[in-house]
Every structure is written in C-alpha cells, then in structure tokens.
Amino acid sequence: MHLILQSLSPDSSAANAIATLSAASKITLISPTVWRCEDVIYSDDLKAQIDAACHAAQLDYAFVPPTRKLSDFKLLAMDMDSTLINIECIDEIADMYGLKPQVSEITEAAMRGELEFNESLLRRVALLKGLDASALQRVYDERLQLSPGAEKMLAAIQAAGIKTLLVSGGFTFFTDRIKARLSLDVTHANQLEIVDGKLTGKVIGGIVNADEKQRTVERVCAELGITAQQTIVMGDGANDLKMMGIAGLSVAFRAKPVVRAQANLALNFVGLDGILPILA
C-alpha cells in the first residue's frame, strides 16, 4: 500500500517519524505538505499505530492501493452541512430566533447517532415556527462559507469529468443556491414549508434521512449507468453512514467519531482538497 500523509505545515519532522514507523521503502515529497510512503505492509495494528501518531501530530493519513486513481470514479456525493459548508444551517437559522443552544443540542445528538434523524429534524424545525423566512437569506449571505479546499476539490473533480451530487438532511433553500454557485449536477434536500413569509415549523414531503441519502446515491448511479463502487461519498454525521457504506471510497470530513471509525479515510485537519493527493 501507499501511505499518504498530509499536514497544514511544511515541517517534515512528524511526517518523517510516521514514515519510519510505517517501514516504508521510499518516501516521496508530493508537495510541501504532502508525503507518499511507498510499499507499506498494511495491518490493522499498524493502522492503529499510525492513527494515534497522526492524531497527536495533527496529520491526516490514508492507506491506498498504488493503482487507485481519481479516474476510477464517476460520481462525487457530498453531505452539505459541516461537510461542503462550514455550518449547520438549521442551527444558524435558530440563532436568528435566539434558539441556537436548543437546536444545536438536538443536531449534535443526531450527528453522533444518539437520536433518530427524522425525530431530530421534526423537533428542530418545529422550534422555528413563526420565524420570518428572510432569516434563511441572512444565514446564506452572512454565515454560510464553503469548507476549506472545497472549490479546489470541485475544480479538479469537474475537470476530471466526475459528476457531483449534494445530498443533504438540510434544506433546499441552501442546496439550490449552492448548486447554482458551484455548478453541481444534482441536489436533494428537505423543503421547509413557508406560508405568508413565515416558517410554519413543518417540512414538505418526505425527509432526507440516512435511508433516503443512500437511495439517492443509488438512483443517481443508476441514471449515470455506473456502480456505487465508482462513487466517492463524503460526510460527517451518522446520517451519512449508509450512503458512505455503499461507496467505492468513503471520506469522513471533520467527522464525528462513529463516522471516522467506519469511513475508508478521514480528513481531520486538511481541507476537502485533501482527497486529491490521495487519488493522484
């Protein structure tokens, strides 16, 4: 296997120490902050050692077959909140209403897998009843930012001819705008009900939960004539695990422990563009 190490700093001392731990036959500097350790003999015990050492040194790592390339994939599926973007939109909407602590607590429990997603969404949306819908635009304009590395990653993905899917347990108000802004191919999310310019505290139609996220990835794959193994899926919360589980490559981005434990690789420190050196 190749072991790819990535850092936010060009200081190579930690990377060299971890490369030595891996017993790599060769270490190649890919960029000032990316190292490739070649001919590493993978084992679960070695992975555990590398994981602990990288966490302590604030390095990201990935074990990848030498033949694995970006061209192996035809679809990139992404979660939105706290993955493609740096906020949980519903928490920021609630903040406009003075209810962020209550809503954030429910959000966190759901993302850790401690609370069923449908229940968590309905409880959170209900708390927003009566809020002026203009709060949605304020959140988009004032608080929503793309996660680090998002634009660089998407530029490379789109240049490679890979289709993009944004599938979110959040809301169409935001996915529609991000789709247009980033030229994404497909989006799917929940629709907030708005009457007379106010949120009613309800959603329209079915809820985009873990099962629906998986079905959406499968549906888009079928439409493209590809298999789920040709898909990269990125997420951060427990409701992303089912779609990540069918992917050819699952990527946990700044994710909850339950997600990091099940993903093929985790990006805890570098940006979303950290997947590019891994698949170079």
Rank of each mutant, 00 (worst) to 15 (best):
M1T: 10
H2S: 06
H2V: 00
I4C: 08
Q6S: 08
L8E: 10
S9I: 09
S12G: 08
S13R: 14
T20M: 12
I27Y: 01
T28S: 10
T28L: 06
T28V: 15
C37A: 12
D39P: 05
V40A: 06
V40Q: 08
D44R: 10
K47M: 10
A48N: 11
D51K: 15
A53P: 06
Q58R: 13
L59H: 00
D60H: 11
V64A: 11
P66W: 06
R68L: 15
K69R: 15
S71L: 09
L76C: 08
L76W: 08
A77R: 04
D79S: 01
M80W: 04
T83D: 13
N86E: 13
E88F: 00
I90K: 07
Q102A: 10
A109C: 04
A109Q: 01
R112P: 00
G113L: 02
L115C: 08
E116I: 03
N118Q: 14
N118C: 11
E119V: 05
G130I: 08
A133W: 07
S134T: 13
Q137V: 02
V139D: 02
Y140S: 10
R143S: 05
Q145F: 02
G149L: 06
K152G: 07
K152D: 14
A155G: 10
A160H: 06
I162V: 11
I162W: 04
L166Q: 04
G169Y: 04
G170A: 11
T172C: 03
R181V: 13
R181M: 15
S183A: 15
L184P: 13
V186A: 12
V186E: 15
T187N: 15
L192A: 05
E193T: 12
L199R: 12
K202T: 14
K202R: 14
G206V: 14
N209I: 06
E212G: 05
E212R: 09
Q214M: 14
Q214W: 02
Q214I: 02
C221S: 13
Q230K: 15
Q230F: 07
T231F: 04
I232P: 06
M243P: 06
I246H: 00
I246R: 00
G248Q: 09
S250P: 06
F253V: 01
V259D: 00
Q262S: 13
F269Y: 12
L272R: 01
G274P: 01
I278V: 15
L279M: 12
L279E: 12
